[in-house]
Design a protein around this nucleic acid. Structure first.
Lengths: 249, 249
DNA sequence: GATACTGTTCCGCTTGGCGGAACAGTATCG
DNA sequence: CGATACTGTTCCGCCAAGCGGAACAGTATC
């Protein structure tokens, strides 16, 4: 790599620490640097608060400074609280499960789900990661990602989950264009036979998409007789209210 | 600051980006560096994946690489899913609200809460931050923090919330020693009049404390006639089961 | 007490990183 | 449409920031 050497070295150390705390000698061996160099880099990182030395002369670990910086890219936690009442409302107006998710690498990560009161429910995905191209939230999060992220996603193999899953990159790119145009994404049995879902974006103050709200249910009754556009509007409303609640913090 | 200049500059840029995306010229002004220097630093950070350029020749933002590194220090999200059934069980066995929280800077951050079925409930703290020294979870998280973190916390003013809040650093240090010894922390009306709580640590595979599980309820009935040690044991059990579920991912 | 480890500090050396200047691309204005 | 004003990128001579080996201080083990 031909960037700034000190920064590359510092992040090599940080990536080692992401796997668990370590001492100077151990880290020096893992990043293949002299102990003096490693110690100096760690000392700088500690001064910045992005690593902590567990005790004087001891092991180092990832510090709060890292978390504070990364929080900008990973809004997740406060969103759960902000979203919850609006997910409950969405569940009540659609009669189906409602959920919240964020982008997480190439996947969509489900943060929360409010289950419907129906006897027949869909799976609770909270805490799980799913691929973007086969889920409504994933399509929303991917559609509003930077072009470089989209290009990288389209370049990887697109796994088929049902006979309806889109696995052609060109068709997926068209689909993402449609999502940006409509402001929501419907998927019909593309991830699971018998399950449909619709998602809409949650934005931050500057307009970047930071999460997605979705509703999902069994294909035989969701959207059922209702207009898909009307159901999508309910999800968009829940997303906008989540955004307003999140902004108010 | 007298550390490695390039690393300090890189993190100055990252901290600016934590406030929202920005272009080279804007960031250069904010960190008071020439554009060429700023561009070179950003290029290196982009190569490492810790920033993304939103589009070629455009604005930069915090990238997934940052999130991956910071995730080591902030286990939070998967914990909510892992903890939930054990919080439900804890609520049922104690009859009081149960919750999950993590350290967040000098505060304790409440990730989730399961409310009791009682007509008289305590406040739902989900999504909120509270000071460590006045909450049972905060005492647990602080007790198992690095010594430097504890020293820094003890050095700051300790705000009083009730007449029972500990505000003397020496007494707080003793209290933390007791928490480490017992393996749990009780607080009795130290944060709010009329509210008690007890917390226990959740650890990761290498034994570091990553979260706390707690139960809390009105002082007139919690712990009530029950032995505080027995109630604490229930919380410890929920914490251990949360840990096992989290490890299984 | 000797040995073997750890992390830290020192310091001469060299090359990595610096920043000003120039460049290429794009948008706006008259 | 040309001039102007911005943006981000690249180049390159210079120098001081960062390097790494050696020495040091502290601690644990035998």
């Amino acid at each position: 790599m031909s960037g700034v050497q000190s920064i590359e070295r510092a992040f090599a150390i940080l990536r080692c620490l992401a796997g668990g705390p370590g001492g100077v000698t151990e880290l020096a061996e893992r990043v293949d640097l002299p102990k003096s160099t490693t110690s100096r880099l760690l000392s700088t990182l500690e001064g910045l608060g992005v690593v902590d030395q567990v005790e004087a002369g001891g092991r180092y670990s990832i510090g709060q400074g890292m978390v504070e910086i990364a929080a900008a890219a990973l809004p997740g936690r406060h969103l759960v609280a902000a979203a919850r009442p609006h997910l409950v409302e969405l569940m009540q107006t659609t009669g189906e499960a409602a959920g919240l998710s964020v982008a997480d690498g190439d996947d969509v990560h489900y943060l929360d789900q409010v289950d419907s009161e129906s006897q027949i429910q869909v799976h609770d995905w909270t805490g799980e990661r799913l691929p973007c191209h086969a889920t409504s939230s994933g399509l929303v999060l991917l559609a509003y990602s930077p072009q470089a992220v989209i290009a990288k996603y389209l370049a990887r193999p697109l796994v088929s989950f049902t006979s309806r899953t889109i696995t052609d990159p060109a068709r997926l790119a068209e689909r993402l264009e449609l999502v940006r145009h409509d402001g929501y994404a419907w998927i019909l049995e593309e991830f699971q036979d018998g399950a449909n879902s619709v998602a809409a974006p949650v934005r931050n103050r500057v307009g970047d998409v930071i999460a997605a709200v979705h509703a999902h249910g069994p294909a035989f009754r969701f959207p059922g007789d209702r207009s898909p556009v009307d159901v999508a509007a309910l999800v968009q409303q829940a997303a906008q209210r989540t955004q307003a609640a999140h902004d108010a913090v």
